[in-house]
Amino acid sequence: MSVIKEVPFPSPETPELPMNIWIDDADSAVDVIDALALSPFATGVQPWSRLVSLERVRTEAALSPAQGRVVRTAQVQDGPESRLICGDGWTLRVVRHRNRTATVSVTAVSDELARSVLKESIDGAEEPEPDTDHVEMGFWWRSSHGATRSEKPITAQPWAEIEGNYSAEARQSLDRLMGVTPADVNGRLILLHGPPGTGKTTLLRSLAKQWQDWCQVDCVLDPERLFNDPGYLMEVAVGYDTEEDQQRWRLLVLEDCDELISAAAKAQTGQGLSRLLNLTDGLLGQGRDVLVAITTNEDLTRLHPAVVRPGRCLAQIEVGPLAREEAVRWLGASTGVGPSGATLAELYAIRSGRAPAATGDESTGLYL
């Protein structure tokens, strides 16, 4: 069964655009709410739109102005709840998820009204920011609707609390990296290389915390698509602007990108390497104050010469295992520590009473 809602064509008296909605048995009640919410904007009756994504939404938060009237509600079992709320000159769509996130969008007859309705709806809806062990990090991915960014709090310890997890050889370079300010930036690429399980991801979380006053850190979840899709790359490079008075630097994190920067990268990824280099010191990166951090398990000798050439990198640091003496000091005992030392992942496994993870498959990175 199909139902078509027809809106008359525009005339001098009614300048709105036409709107047709097709609904069949493949559509859900949530789809109907989505269509109804878009209708006033699509026809031009309410030509102003505002949208915000919320984290840690309070259970008791109404997410609606006091004068709003709920006209539709759809609840998916063990899933999100969607509501359509209307008022004088505005329409509000609220989608609440079980993980306490929510999306609130409003259309209105004026931008001022859209802003005020949205502000009243979300005012006080979120719980306070997590404690100081967290930092906000953005996450980019390419969905069917284009480039998508979500911001979430992640656990991040200050550098002073975790520096003992790294070898003395790497610590001096890491100290300098953690202390970088915008005035110190003389290269756009940060390259962290070394075996899996040595703490490269932990370093990036700590770096996000150390730089949080001047740099927004975003992790790209699908870097292989990023450099194969110029449109996606442009959206990520342009970034996500806030209403802050001063534009912040941005650090894009690309984890385990061995194919992108290897010696055979040109043959394996086509234009991917060229676009990466353009982002780090070409026109694209220079115009947006963008830094790029890459982690890899590859040795430097196996990377493309263009990536490691002098002047390209702000930091190029080998993150290796702790030497035996350092590993024994970290663990407080010598049991389980081999003659050549141990990685951070192996030390955590030993301390928890588990056998160290096998290192035959180095594709996982062990996420430390």
Rank of each mutant, 00 (worst) to 15 (best):
S49P: 00
V236F: 07
W159T: 07
E362A: 13
E161K: 11
E325Q: 14
D184G: 04
Q246W: 04
V57A: 09
D258M: 01
L51F: 02
P153S: 12
L368S: 10
D133V: 00
I33Y: 03
S143C: 12
T269E: 04
E259R: 03
R56D: 14
P356V: 07
G79W: 08
H145M: 12
V328W: 01
L331Y: 02
L203A: 11
W22D: 12
S11D: 11
S82W: 01
G239V: 06
P10T: 04
T14V: 10
V217T: 15
A267G: 00
E325D: 14
R171Q: 14
W22L: 15
E169R: 14
I162P: 01
H134Y: 15
V3C: 03
D222Q: 05
P128A: 02
G194Y: 11
I4Q: 09
A342G: 05
I294H: 05
T181R: 15
L347F: 03
N186A: 12
W249C: 10
M1K: 04
G341M: 07
T364A: 13
L17Y: 10
A160L: 10
G282Y: 06
Q46W: 01
S262K: 01
I350G: 03
W90N: 02
W211K: 06
G231N: 13
Y232M: 09
A170T: 11
S116E: 15
E259P: 12
R329V: 11
D241M: 12
E60I: 02
V238F: 08
K209H: 13
I122E: 07
S53W: 10
A29T: 09
T364M: 07
C215G: 10
S144F: 05
A264M: 00
E60F: 04
S143H: 13
V236R: 12
G138R: 11
A42T: 11
I350P: 05
P158A: 09
D133Q: 11
S173V: 00
S2R: 09
Y240V: 12
L63M: 07
L92P: 09
L192Y: 10
G353E: 04
V308H: 01
Y367F: 11
W90P: 08
E136C: 08
V95A: 05
L303R: 02
H134L: 01
T148L: 14
G187K: 03
L347W: 05
G164E: 09
L283C: 00
E126D: 06
